[in-house]
Simulated scan of single mutants.
Amino acid sequence: MQHLPEILKIIEGGVKNNATQVASYASLLADKLESEGLQRDAGSIRKKLNSVASPADLTPHAIDSTPLPVDRDSRLTLGDLTLPILENSQVQLNDQVKEKVNEFLEFIKQSHLLTSAGVGITPSMLIYGPPGCGKTQLANNIAAHLQLPLITARCDTLVSSFLGATAKNLRSLFDHAASRPCVLFLDEFDAFAKARDDHHELGELKRVVVSLLQNIDSLPEDTILLAATNHEELLDAAVWRRFAYRIKIPLPNPELRKGLIEQFLGEFQNGGLATLADVAKGMNGAVIKQACQAAIRKAIISGQDNIDNDYLTIKLAQDQYTNIIDDQKMTDEEKVVRLKNLNAKLFTISRLSAMFGMSTGKISKLTSTRGKLNEQ
Rank of each mutant, 00 (worst) to 15 (best):
I314S: 05
E232Q: 14
D222N: 15
I307E: 00
P250N: 14
K289F: 09
A244C: 11
M283L: 15
G271K: 14
I301R: 15
M330N: 06
T275N: 09
F264P: 03
E267D: 15
Q290R: 15
S302I: 06
F268N: 06
T313I: 06
T322M: 08
L234W: 03
T223M: 08
A228Y: 02
F243V: 04
G303L: 04
A299N: 04
L235P: 10
G266Y: 10
K248G: 12
I325Y: 02
Q304K: 15
P254N: 10
G285L: 05
D236Q: 04
Q328A: 14
L316M: 08
V279D: 07
Q263E: 12
Q269N: 13
M330L: 15
Q263F: 13
P250A: 13
G303P: 00
L256E: 15
L316V: 05
A228F: 00
T322W: 03
K248Y: 14
L225Y: 05
I288L: 09
I300P: 03
G266K: 05
L276T: 02
C292Q: 04
T322D: 13
I325S: 04
I296G: 02
V279C: 10
E255I: 11
Q263T: 12
A317Y: 01
E233Q: 14
N284G: 15
L251H: 10
K315D: 00
G282Y: 13
L276R: 03
T275D: 11
L251Q: 11
L234K: 14
A228D: 07
Q293G: 02
P254R: 09
I247Y: 06
D305M: 11
D222L: 03
N270H: 13
F264K: 11
V239N: 03
D327S: 09
I301S: 12
D326K: 15
W240D: 02
W240H: 15
L265Q: 05
D319Y: 09
P250S: 14
F243S: 04
L226T: 03
A237M: 09
P220V: 01
G282F: 12
E233F: 12
E255K: 12
T331C: 07
L260W: 02
K248N: 14
I249C: 05
N306R: 14
P220I: 02
T331H: 00
Q269F: 02
N309D: 08
T322G: 04
A299T: 03
Q269W: 02
T322Y: 07
E267L: 12
A244I: 08
T275M: 12
I249E: 00
I301T: 11
L225H: 03
A317E: 01
H231D: 08
V279A: 13
G266F: 09
A227Y: 01
G271H: 10
D222C: 04
I247C: 11
I261P: 00
D308N: 15
Y321W: 13
M330S: 05
Y311N: 00
V279T: 12
H231V: 08
L225C: 07
N284T: 07
R242T: 01
I261A: 00
